[in-house]
């Protein structure tokens, strides 16, 4: 009986075609940005590894509220709502930190999900910081409006990465 009812609701779904912001049917998009900072890798790592301090160095992040050791609720400059990021891994040996979007707000960043990894590497000029991520557009239905499209997501996530890298540079130059 339950199945019959579910089939009915599926049929209704065909007609309604409601977009589902949680779905991941569309093509995942990527960001891959690098910047060489004229700073020692240990100093860069100290800044990057402190999950609660992103507001101190990322120019777009205005408020950070830690709800536990691995969860941060952040406000983005010029936006009303908040998004929540969750720490996945922080590996001091590899100088690698990764985190993901735990609760999205597509009015803040037009992305339904992302995972980001920041990797440090010592180079002659200082430290190369690589910011990489995989993400899905804000509206994961098959007919997204322009502001929630793949292009909008790529633009926002690239800016988040670029601004982050440049913010790190400025913060370490102080």
């Amino acid at each position: 009986m339950k199945l019959a009812r579910n089939i009915f609701s599926v049929m209704m779904g065909v007609v309604i075609l409601a977009s589902n912001v949680y779905a991941h049917g569309p093509t995942p998009q990527r960001v891959d940005e690098q910047l060489v900072l004229s700073a020692d890798i240990d100093d860069v790592w100290q800044v990057v590894a402190d999950f609660s301090s992103i507001g101190d160095w990322h120019p777009q992040v205005t408020v950070v509220e830690m709800t536990d050791d691995t969860t941060r609720v952040i406000s983005i400059e010029g936006q009303q709502g908040t998004i929540t990021e969750s720490l996945d891994e922080s590996d001091a040996e590899r100088r690698y930190i990764s985190f993901r979007l735990l609760r999205e707000d597509i009015t803040v960043i037009p992305v339904s999900f992302y995972s980001i990894a920041i990797q440090l590497e010592a180079v002659d000029a200082g430290t190369e910081v690589t910011w990489r991520g995989r993400f899905y557009r804000g509206d994961t239905g098959n007919f997204p409006p322009e502001n929630l499209s793949d292009a909008a997501a790529v633009e926002a996530m690239t800016a988040y990465a670029r601004n982050g890298l440049e913010g790190l540079q400025q913060s370490l130059a102080k």
């Binding site: 609701s9 599926v10 949680y22 779905a23 991941h24 049917g25």
Partner: peptide, 28 residues
Amino acid sequence: DWDRDAVLVINAESLQLVDILAVGKSPA
């Protein structure tokens, strides 16, 4: 079918969609 919370059944000989079965949310 991630969007419709369903499993689609396609006849592999006739290559026609023959059934839509309800499952949970966003089946992967």
